[in-house]
Simulated scan of single mutants.
Amino acid sequence: MRSPRRRPPLVPVLLCALVVFVSRPSGAFGGDGITGSGISAEVARLYEDAALATQQYEAGRRDAEAQRERARHLEGLLDGRRRDIAALHEDLGRIARAQYRTGGGLPVAARMLLSDSPEELMRGQRVVRQADLAVHREIDRSRRAEARLATDEARARAEWERLERRSAELAALKDSIQRKLEEARGRLQGQADVSAAAGACRGAVRLDQPETGFTGAWVAPVETYELSAGFGSGGARWAHRHTGQDFAVPIGTPVRAVGDGRVAKVACGGAFGMQIVVQHPGGYYTQYAHLASAAVDPGERVRTGQWIGQSGSTGNSTGPHLHFEVRVTPELGSGVDPVAWLAARGVRL
């Protein structure tokens, strides 16, 4: 459900995000001096930061799982090395026992006295030398294997520690962004409630527009969502039938114009709370209701995918969501099924 968008590399993005949050003034989230425009823009920035941090956290989690799999593979190799060393030790023990049984541990003078002939003595000496060489080779092999084992075990421990630190840093950054976003969302909704209660919008709150790069003429009204109440469904909060399609999204989610058009209406108060109506070529109108802020003014031209406001929970709303309608007139009562209307234009929800 997310439009494809090129994401920057993981480490630079997380470091930059961390610097931004440390350097932002505390007034961005509180105090009497903050403006409606400031908190709306802050929520929009934090919303994007949170989405990016979540994506990077998930990428980091997948990378961590791959690292764990490599660590498990290395641990298997280390177990093999331990078995090899145990086998070397067993070989050394076998050679030592054989030398003891064949007199390999006797002094040369004693072997001369016990031997029956010089040839027998020489053969015995060759056997002893060969046994000594074999012992030394096995000892060297054992020492080299133990040194490799110690190096690999240290490398495995370092990899696990690095992995755990990275996972903790990603989780902490994601949680920090989310806490700041929740606080800013609460302030944004509070300002929207005041405007809706007064029945007067405070004017367009301009947002920095993202680079979209849409190839189609139409898009969904929000980027990431879950569909909730649909067109024509019944409910205690509607007089007859539900007149639009609801998108369950958090407060402050950027709301997009589904296509090119002109803003026909921006209003506050009533059952729809803060709302925007856009007129499109071909005689259709789209409505975006229960908003927390509006980023456009009446009469303004908008393009496909432009951020025109932020979702909220104003008016007759039980929780944060976007109420989206498609109509043949600007007024309530002329709605058509938004899901089918968008599907006919290449946008499948």
Score class of each variant (00 low, 15 high):
residue 178 Q to K: 04
residue 311 S to Q: 01
residue 67 Q to V: 10
residue 184 A to Y: 10
residue 191 Q to C: 03
residue 23 S to C: 05
residue 95 I to A: 06
residue 53 A to V: 07
residue 233 S to V: 09
residue 50 A to T: 14
residue 45 R to M: 13
residue 316 N to G: 01
residue 109 A to Y: 03
residue 298 P to G: 00
residue 280 H to W: 13
residue 270 G to Q: 08
residue 224 T to K: 05
residue 151 T to G: 01
residue 188 L to M: 03
residue 124 G to E: 04
residue 241 R to S: 13
residue 182 E to G: 00
residue 213 G to P: 03
residue 335 G to H: 15
residue 84 D to R: 10
residue 18 L to T: 14
residue 346 G to C: 03
residue 307 W to G: 02
residue 78 L to H: 09
residue 249 V to M: 02
residue 129 R to G: 13
residue 7 R to V: 13
residue 328 V to L: 10
residue 178 Q to H: 02
residue 21 F to Q: 12
residue 180 K to D: 07
residue 79 D to Q: 14
residue 234 G to F: 08
residue 36 G to A: 07
residue 202 R to Y: 08
residue 277 V to Q: 07
residue 115 S to L: 00
residue 273 G to H: 00
residue 106 L to P: 04
residue 152 D to Q: 11
residue 22 V to D: 10
residue 132 D to S: 11
residue 227 L to E: 04
residue 113 L to C: 06
residue 220 A to K: 06
residue 249 V to E: 00
residue 193 D to Q: 15
residue 88 L to I: 13
residue 44 A to V: 10
residue 109 A to T: 11
residue 98 A to M: 04
residue 324 F to Q: 06
residue 332 L to K: 07
residue 197 A to D: 15
residue 130 Q to S: 13
residue 277 V to A: 09
residue 254 P to S: 05
residue 258 V to Q: 04
residue 41 A to K: 02
residue 63 D to H: 11
residue 315 G to I: 12
residue 102 T to M: 09
residue 10 L to G: 07
residue 35 T to R: 03
residue 335 G to W: 08
residue 209 Q to T: 06
residue 79 D to E: 14
residue 243 T to R: 06
residue 254 P to I: 06
residue 309 G to P: 03
residue 180 K to P: 01
residue 72 R to W: 11
residue 299 G to V: 05
residue 144 R to N: 11
residue 219 V to P: 10
residue 307 W to T: 11
residue 188 L to E: 05
residue 122 M to G: 00
residue 55 Q to R: 15
residue 20 V to M: 01
residue 309 G to L: 05
residue 95 I to F: 13
residue 149 L to E: 14
residue 26 S to H: 12
residue 345 R to S: 06
residue 288 Y to Q: 06
residue 287 Q to K: 00
residue 177 I to H: 05
residue 311 S to P: 01
residue 237 R to C: 05
residue 38 G to Y: 03
residue 143 R to K: 14
residue 340 A to T: 15
residue 160 W to R: 12
residue 191 Q to M: 10
residue 200 A to V: 08
residue 297 D to R: 07
residue 280 H to R: 01
residue 93 G to Y: 15
residue 120 E to M: 09
residue 311 S to W: 04
residue 90 E to C: 08
residue 201 C to T: 14
residue 210 P to G: 03
residue 225 Y to E: 04
residue 340 A to F: 14
residue 60 G to I: 08
residue 305 G to C: 07
residue 85 I to S: 15
residue 37 S to L: 07
residue 97 R to Q: 15
residue 134 A to M: 11
residue 202 R to Q: 14
residue 146 E to N: 05
residue 276 I to V: 15
residue 69 E to N: 11
residue 96 A to I: 07
residue 127 V to K: 05
residue 346 G to Q: 00
residue 85 I to F: 10
residue 224 T to R: 12
residue 156 A to R: 14
residue 67 Q to A: 11
residue 25 P to S: 04
residue 109 A to N: 06
residue 328 V to N: 09
residue 12 P to M: 08
residue 313 S to K: 12
residue 96 A to D: 14
residue 82 R to V: 07
residue 310 Q to K: 03
residue 118 P to V: 00
residue 264 A to H: 14
residue 3 S to I: 00
residue 220 A to Y: 04
residue 160 W to A: 12
residue 278 V to I: 09
residue 323 H to K: 00
residue 52 L to Y: 02
residue 185 R to Y: 05
residue 20 V to H: 03
residue 165 R to F: 09
residue 327 R to M: 07
residue 299 G to H: 06
residue 298 P to T: 05
residue 256 R to W: 15
residue 74 L to Y: 00
residue 8 P to Q: 15
residue 202 R to M: 09
residue 342 L to G: 10
residue 322 L to I: 05
residue 50 A to F: 14
residue 194 V to H: 02
residue 299 G to M: 08
